[in-house]
Simulated assay, not measured.
Amino acid sequence: MSAPPTAAPTVLVTTDYLVPGDEVDAFLRDAGFATRHRPPRGPRGHAELVAILAGAEGALIGNEPMTAEVFANAPDLRAVVRTGVGYDSVDVDAATRAGVSVSNLPGVNANAVAEYTMALLLAQARRLVPAAAGVRAGGWPREDGHELRGRTLGLLGYGAAARAVVPLARAFGMTVLCTTSVPESGRRDAAARFVGLPELLTAADYLSVHTALTPATRHLIDAAALARMKPTAHLVNTARGAIVDEAALAAAVRAGRLAGAALDVTATEPLPAGSPLRDVPGITVYSHLAGQTAEARRAAGLDGARELVAALRGRPRTSLNAHLFQRDED
Rank of each mutant, 00 (worst) to 15 (best):
A248L: 08
A119H: 08
R78D: 08
L271R: 08
A248F: 08
R240Y: 15
R82M: 07
L148I: 10
M66L: 12
A252W: 12
L249C: 01
H46L: 07
N109A: 15
G42H: 07
H288S: 06
V209W: 13
P40M: 10
L263I: 07
P231M: 15
A203V: 00
I52F: 13
R29M: 02
V19R: 14
P40R: 14
V209T: 03
N104H: 15
T14M: 14
G274C: 03
R149H: 13
L263T: 04
F27C: 01
P75N: 12
A247I: 03
I243T: 04
T15N: 09
R297I: 02
A56G: 02
R163K: 14
T232D: 15
A164L: 01
L213P: 00
V176L: 05
E57P: 00
T96M: 02
M229I: 14
V81H: 05
L153V: 06
A74G: 02
Y116A: 07
S275K: 06
R170H: 08
S287L: 13
R151V: 00
A299C: 01
G86F: 11
A132D: 15
P215T: 13
V135L: 15
T10P: 00
A54N: 12
F27S: 01
T175E: 14
T266G: 06
H288M: 09
P183C: 04
L148H: 10
D16R: 14
R306C: 03
I283K: 11
G150A: 04
P43H: 10
A248Q: 11
N63R: 06
L18R: 05
G32K: 05
L197Q: 11
L324Y: 12
A255G: 00
S2F: 14
L263K: 04
F325S: 06
Q292D: 12
E246A: 00
L277Q: 09
L148E: 12
H210L: 04
I61R: 02
A191W: 08
V285I: 13
A72D: 11
L128K: 07
G42I: 05
L226S: 04
N109T: 12
R240W: 13
D93Q: 13
Q292F: 14
G134P: 04
N321F: 08
A191H: 08
P183W: 14
G45C: 03
L148N: 07
A94I: 05
R297Q: 13
D16H: 15
H234C: 13
H146T: 07
I61T: 09
Y206L: 00
M66S: 04
T293C: 04
A224V: 06
A310W: 13
R254A: 05
A8N: 08
G196C: 03
R193W: 09
T35W: 11
L120N: 01
V129D: 11
M229Q: 13
A250I: 07
F172Q: 05
R187L: 04
H37F: 15
A112H: 10
V280N: 12
R306W: 12
G241I: 09
V81K: 03
Q124A: 13
D279L: 03
L53Q: 11
R257F: 08
L121Y: 12
R193L: 04
E147S: 11
V100R: 10
A160T: 02
A74S: 10
G173I: 06
R298N: 05
G55S: 09
A239H: 03
Y206E: 02
A98H: 08
Y286N: 00
A31T: 01
L277G: 05
P316K: 03
N111A: 14
G154Y: 12
L220H: 00
